[in-house]
Write a protein that binds this DNA or RNA. Structure first.
Length: 275
DNA sequence: GGCCAGGGTAGAA
DNA sequence: TTCTACCATGGC
């Protein structure tokens, strides 16, 4: 599936790795697009460069092991897509989003990022997170790391208002303080989805949808289905007008089971780009 | 100038 | 337990 040489990872099966789909499907907010075939991706205090060519893709980075896990390279996405193709409503989404992978991102970065995402749009989320990094992150010579909980906990609520977080300022500060005081987000990796979900819901500013996104994009829990405005539109299109988000979530979890996380991402990407 | 965006909280019913 | 008003901001 992939080869390692020096500071780069070489991917031959380009059908299961399409950079523009992976990065622009709304699971990550820190990347720079040079062109459709050329991206720079940031995670925690690390970065990598993706260069996509005709029959192979190269990922250049300093920490190969980190980005092998980050891009979920040890998982067989051909198999996942094959299983998804047997489930309802997936045909068009699978064609359009071919090459999507679910990233394994940092829990702390996801927690803060998706608190910011609430009732917000992706360009604004990216802008607020960028300001967070440039003002509180570490200077890595050319880019800035995602700030630590300690750095974020030391700021005032007004600071978060001033970078555009609005009413989410209080959520960000209180969450940073709780993490800086010792709450260990890594303990959720070993918890069953339901228990990890309860833990995330105990943070201010984290409701069911935000918790589902963190469970999926940080902990790779597959039996979750984040229901946002786009998924509501998908639901209305295929299944009628059931408006209660909890009922939508339960129904979609019932349909997609342990593939829910993957199915959601394909459906979201398709609906948001093509309507 | 109202609507929308990867919604959540607090208080009412 | 479920329903509703309110919440900052910017792009359209």
């Amino acid at each position: 599936m992939f080869l390692i040489s020096n500071n780069s990872i070489l991917i031959n099966n380009i059908n299961d790795f399409v950079a523009s789909h992976i990065l622009e499907c709304g699971q990550i907010f820190r990347y720079k697009k040079i062109s459709t075939e050329h991206y720079i991706v940031f995670s925690k205090d690390k970065k990598c460069e993706i260069i996509q060519e005709k029959d192979s893709t190269k990922i250049i980075c300093d920490d190969v092991d980190y980005f092998i896990n980050f891009f979920d390279l040890n998982r067989d996405y051909s198999n996942i897509k094959s299983q998804l193709s047997n489930l309802p409503f997936m045909t068009d989404s699978l064609v359009h989003g071919n090459g999507i992978r679910i990233l394994n991102q940092d829990p702390w970065e996801m927690l803060i990022s998706f608190i910011i995402s609430a009732n917000n749009n992706i360009p604004r989320i990216q802008s607020i997170i960028a300001k967070l990094c440039t003002t509180l992150g570490k200077d890595m010579c050319g880019y800035y790391s995602f700030p630590t909980a300690e750095a974020m906990a030391s700021m005032s609520e007004d600071f978060y208002r001033n970078i555009g977080a609005g009413y989410r300022a209080r959520y960000l500060l209180q969450t940073a303080q709780r993490i800086a005081n010792g709450y260990d987000l890594n303990q959720l990796f070993d918890m069953p989805t339901k228990l990890a979900n309860e833990q995330l819901l105990s943070f201010v500013g984290v409701g069911q949808k935000v918790a589902d996104c963190i469970l999926l994009f940080a902990y790779h829990k597959q039996d979750v289905f984040p229901v946002d405005t786009w998924i509501k539109k998908v639901y209305c299109q295929y299944l009628g007008e059931l408006v209660n988000p909890n009922q939508i979530r339960a129904k979609l979890l019932d349909i997609y089971g342990n593939l829910s996380g993957y199915a959601q991402q394909y459906l979201f990407f398709y609906k948001r780009q093509l309507g």
